[in-house]
């Protein structure tokens, strides 16, 4: 397998696990955190939005508010991971697509 395929395959394996594997948060919640599609209750939505868009501004109070609104710590762990992996995946795909366009290739390099 070419080296770049190994990098992308390793990334894909992470994405597939956090979205599709067993979890304490529902698969639907994890997909929404990944995509930045909005979540209930509102304090959870605020936390997950910050993780994706301005992570350095997340505070202890953001996590405490999501817990007080009924989320367990394991659910928060999973949903924060999904938000981080989701944002990263969009950046990775945007970069690969721009490269493919620049090189005149119809698809990202290494894509099957």
């Amino acid at each position: 397998m070419p080296d770049e395929d190994r990098k992308r395959a390793a990334h894909r394996a992470l994405v597939e696990r956090v979205l599709g594997g067993e979890g304490r948060a529902s698969a639907e919640q994890r997909a929404r955190a990944f995509a930045g599609d909005g979540l209930a209750p509102p304090p959870l939505d605020a936390l997950i939005g910050k993780v994706a868009d301005r992570p350095a501004q997340v505070t202890e109070a953001d996590l405490a508010a999501a817990k007080a609104a009924g989320c367990t710590e394991d659910q928060l762990f999973e949903l924060v991971v999904c938000a981080a992996v989701g944002r990263s995946t969009r950046l990775y795909e945007a970069g690969l697509a721009a490269l493919a366009e620049a090189t005149g290739d119809g698809r990202p390099h290494g894509a099957a």
Binding site: S88, L91, Y92, L96
Partner: peptide
């Protein structure tokens, strides 16, 4: 592509 993989990894870890 290699640089984009580094960027992807750290956009997860930073968050």
């Amino acid at each position: 592509q290699d640089a984009l993989a580094v960027c992807a990894a750290f956009n997860i870890t930073n968050r």
